[in-house]
């Protein structure tokens, strides 16, 4: 309750929450407003927004309804965002927790692996994974999760390093509790707040990475994602720029929303830093 009140006191955080909820609503309403396949041909290609009352946001170079693709694309973008973030956070917390809690040789090994991942540019690694394993939507999501976990692991490790020597953890050791209990029940709940905040960053990165893949036409062509739509507009960018601009704005607002939510969470979880 106290947490919600702290969060609600921050106007930027509320705007962020409203944006994310709006995108969520778009995804939920998509099948009601635009039943049927958004990728099916709907009318004459490249109609400008407002030119035809049937297509308020116009049509793309293949004559598909942009509004329908936008609404269905919200589902895809959010799904990829949440799933890839979940994968990255689970891997990151697992590796970071083990490295930070045990230290020594375990820490050295796991952190060298993490650094190996971090030194490769994210997007190149993603391209390689997609090139090798194919580009259907599941593979793309998993691949994004795999390239996004190292910062989560480093953050979790840092929290664990400082928490594992606290008196309350030592007291639990003396009570005869297992390492699993110490990690999961004592340290992890205290280490989680910064990781949750960082998860919003991971989510923004995941949505952007998928869009970038789609722009290069390397994402799943059989789903109507925002990135695919931007990619379709690439060839007509100078004359019919709206094809790329409309989904671009959608991505911009979604990422803005997610980032503001993250900032709001940060302020609400660290009340001492709020108001600075």
């Amino acid at each position: 309750m106290q947490f919600l009140r702290a969060y609600a006191r921050n106007p930027a955080a509320l705007i962020g929450a409203a944006l994310v909820l709006a995108v969520l609503a778009m995804g939920l309403l998509a099948p009601l407003l635009y039943p049927g396949d958004p990728l099916s041909l709907a009318g004459r290609p490249l109609q400008w927004p407002g030119a035809n009352p049937r297509f308020p946001l116009g049509t793309d170079p293949s004559g598909r309804d942009i509004a329908a693709q936008l609404f269905h694309g919200a589902r895809v973008s959010l799904l990829i965002g949440f799933s890839a973030t979940a994968i990255a956070v689970v891997i990151g917390i697992g590796i970071g927790a083990l490295a930070g809690f045990y230290g020594g040789i375990v820490d050295t090994l796991l952190m060298r692996v993490t650094e190996a991942f971090q030194t490769l540019p994210n997007f190149l690694l993603l391209l390689v994974l997609v090139a090798v394993f194919g580009s259907d939507i599941k593979t793309v999501t998993i691949a994004i999760g795999i390239v996004a976990w190292p910062p989560v692991a480093r953050l979790t490790r840092a929290e664990f390093l400082s928490l594992r020597t606290r008196d309350f953890v030592q007291a639990c050791r003396l009570q005869g509790l297992s390492d699993a209990h110490l990690i999961l029940r004592e340290v992890l709940p205290n280490a989680l707040p910064p990781v949750i905040v960082y998860a919003s960053v991971v989510m923004a990165i995941a949505i952007l990475l998928e869009s970038a893949l789609a722009f290069l036409q390397l994402s799943d062509p059989n789903v109507s994602s925002w990135g695919n739509l931007i990619g379709l507009g690439r060839n007509v960018l100078r004359a019919e720029w709206y094809v790329s601009a409309i989904p671009g704005i959608a991505i911009l607002l979604t990422i803005l929303g997610v980032s503001l939510v993250g900032q709001g969470l940060n302020d609400a979880l660290n009340p001492r830093l709020a108001g600075r």
Partner: peptide, 10 residues
């Protein structure tokens, strides 16, 4: 330290 020796979240 009575403030550090109890887990604040349990």
């Amino acid at each position: 330290d009575p403030f550090a020796s109890l887990n604040p979240r349990r």
